[in-house]
Design a protein around this nucleic acid. Structure first.
Lengths: 218, 218
DNA sequence: TAGATTGTTAATCGATTAACAATC
DNA sequence: TAGATTGTTAATCGATTAACAATC
């Protein structure tokens, strides 16, 4: 149904549209034009229309877009209409934070298992979920038909654990380990590299603090 | 010293170069050419050279780049040669996870304070740091010369808290609240929108699972 | 010196913006 | 119908890649 080869630039913007539309929906806004939305979101109206038209015509000439309809449709495009079961590998601080982040469930993601190598953690419960040993992974993934794994483990183990998970049937990695995973082409990957994000912030701060460069030769 | 108006595309790649160079350094690699590095990192050699030349010539014709030198220089560009003091606003699961993430300190970031509105949390310690009440923010920021704040609070409070922090002297926000902050031009912002990241992963998974589109008319 | 590889300019590619005909 | 706003094509802009002279 959808066009393949949507550029990553477009994909990055979709969830943001979805968020703004959700907020409009909460405010009971019924319709919105690309122009109004563009002003709220600080993008061009042209870009909004271009982006949406990759997936089909959701608007109506002379009217704009129905907020609820567009919200639902973008949700479908993003796959949020299905219950996506997620497991978390690594029950450290970050893994626990993710497990406790209730927002995900509102978006159709169900965290159904947490795993850790540390025997000391086994049996502990996080939000009702028992921490399980890695030995149970193969069975658990198969039985629960899990496709998505969040990796919150040290970078040293990431490659090996990822390969294992792929062999058990995982098809999507939400990778928090500060390393680049090399995966088979049918497996998808989204990185969250927090240290890199913080370094970018540091760069921006530094640039903003520097005295203005003027045109004199150096 | 540095050229202003470096494109965000370049800035996004800098921390990744830094990470790869750090790994090479650990392996005692002394020199590397843009070609070798490009193969490791899966980018073009041209791009590496272009990117680096925004900040000056770090290489040598016929030789390539000295790994340690380039690593240090990129570190300086990113502002990692200074101790950056960071406070965390919101001592929930995510705030605690960040506080415990030791990796940041290796990169010159020092988490020096954690704040929360919940009186029940006050006095609790995270990695030796006492959770403080919001009332102490103004004083704390001034006394410790803090420029960077990580926001791990609900989106409803984010705008107001951010405005407050700006008035106390914060100049950089690492924003985990799922909202877009509107800040004065001298204040910089780096967003980590986890829910959006997970939605992108979901989109990719969905696209990968769909049967291949072929060229037949629909 | 000869070989290698940078720094940098020019060419290409892709993404964003502008424009406007179609149409509700 | 007249006005508004989309869907879509064309123009522009910016980022990536290729090429090569400079030079270590």
């Amino acid at each position: 149904m959808y066009d393949k080869g949507i550029s990553t630039a477009v994909i990055k913007r979709l969830p943001r549209y979805y968020r703004y539309l959700g907020e409009l929906l909460e405010k009971d806004v019924v319709r919105i034009s690309s122009k109004e939305l563009s002003e709220k979101m600080n993008v061009t109206a042209s870009q909004i229309r271009q982006d949406l038209n990759h997936f089909g015509g959701f608007g109506q000439q002379g009217y704009g877009y129905n907020v609820e309809y567009l919200y639902t449709e973008i949700g479908k495009i993003l796959g949020l209409d299905q219950k996506n079961r997620v497991i978390i590998i690594g029950a450290g601080n970050l893994g626990q934070a993710l497990a406790n982040y209730a927002d995900f469930e509102r978006r159709g993601f169900l965290i159904c298992g947490i795993f850790d190598v540390d025997p000391g953690k086994l049996g502990q419960r996080i939000r009702g979920l028992e921490i399980r040993p890695m030995e149970e992974l193969a069975d658990f993934i198969r039985k629960n038909d899990v496709k998505i794994a969040a990796l919150t483990i040290p970078r040293q183990n990431a490659a090996q654990v990822a390969a294992e998970l792929v062999s058990y049937g995982i098809r999507a990695f939400w990778n928090f380990a500060p390393t680049d995973l090399h995966l088979p082409p049918e497996v998808v990957l989204e990185n969250v590299h927090l240290a890199e994000s913080l370094m970018r912030l540091s760069y921006k701060l530094k640039s903003a603090e520097e005295p203005e460069e003027d045109d004199r030769a150096e």
